[in-house]
């Protein structure tokens, strides 16, 4: 299994390098956090918004961009296409579960993205010293762990939506809806503590915070004590739920799947 995975990762890395310009353009297309940063900065000109001074917004959105690049996933669109066009059929015959191919390409892509991103982050903190901050070892380590789990939650729940293509042709619209909810409740439109309390009360139970915002909150020290462990617990809960749901949908879906032209 490990040897298969190493081979898969090598192949994915070559693929990532082959499409490097494409990946770069995709990274550049992540403009929404920057647009929102500009908007919030223009609001913060008159004085702090909530607890946020201009430097706090810069710091927040820089970390959002990093975590987002780490956790981004497009697997639902890939699964949708493979199921709709029947590309999945030959892959089902292979000795390795077809989802591992997607896991590997996402992982290889991470290495490439972070390599490009880190120098840019250093430049931001270099030219904008007000945004620098210090973080203890423990929250930093926990932030790294929760970022990895956040990728897991995002990958698995998006995969589940992609798998709905076994039954419907509209899973792409569902992906868009899910994505929009994530933009709203995951911390991109606004830091979550600027949303109305009633919304965040519901948001606590939904998966969106655990796909992006939680690691950002941890590294900035916005969530501590009991609330921190509640957050981590909810995140692990969603990881497990996503995994079980994926197994279930895959099992049902493959059983009644008959590809186009088969």
């Amino acid at each position: 299994m490990i040897r298969k995975y190493i081979a898969l990762l090598k192949a994915s890395w070559s693929l990532t390098m082959e499409y490097r310009v494409g990946t770069l353009v995709w990274m550049l297309s992540n403009t929404l956090p920057l647009i929102m940063l500009a908007v919030w900065l223009s609001l913060a000109e008159e004085g702090p918004v909530g607890n946020y001074a201009p430097a706090d917004f810069v710091r927040y959105y820089v970390i959002v961009v990093i975590v987002r690049q780490f956790t981004t996933a497009w697997v639902s669109y890939e699964l949708e296409r493979q199921i709709r066009l029947g590309e999945l059929s030959p892959k089902l015959l292979r000795p390795l579960h077809p989802i591992h191919e997607h896991v590997a390409i996402h992982l290889a892509d991470r290495v490439f993205r972070i390599g490009l991103l880190l120098p840019l982050v250093f430049l931001v903190f270099w030219f904008y010293p007000e945004a620098r901050f210090s973080v203890d070892v423990f929250p930093a380590a926990l932030a790294v762990v929760t970022t990895v789990v956040a990728f897991g939650v995002r990958f698995l729940t998006f995969s589940c939506i992609g798998l709905l293509s076994f039954w419907t042709t509209q899973s792409e619209s569902l992906s868009d809806l899910y994505y929009a909810a994530w933009v709203m409740l995951g911390g991109i439109i606004a830091p979550l503590d600027l949303l109305p309390a009633s919304v965040m009360h519901i948001g606590f139970y939904l998966p969106f915070r655990y796909m992006l915002s939680l690691p950002v909150e941890i590294v900035l020290g916005k969530v501590t004590g009991v609330a921190l462990w509640q957050g981590v617990f909810m995140q692990l809960g969603w990881l497990l739920a996503g995994f079980l749901l994926f197994r279930l949908l895959w099992h049902w879906g493959v059983r009644n799947y008959s590809a186009v032209g088969a």
């Binding site: 494409g22 353009v25 995709w26 297309s29 403009t31 647009i35 500009a38």
Partner: peptide
């Protein structure tokens, strides 16, 4: 990719351009 990038930049049009910093 190019059309996607264009849409992403077009997104900035959701807000009045006067709220952005000068060079933007």
């Amino acid at each position: 990719n190019i059309t996607h990038l264009f849409s992403a930049i077009f997104d900035a049009g959701r807000f009045p351009v006067t709220i952005y910093p000068g060079w933007v």
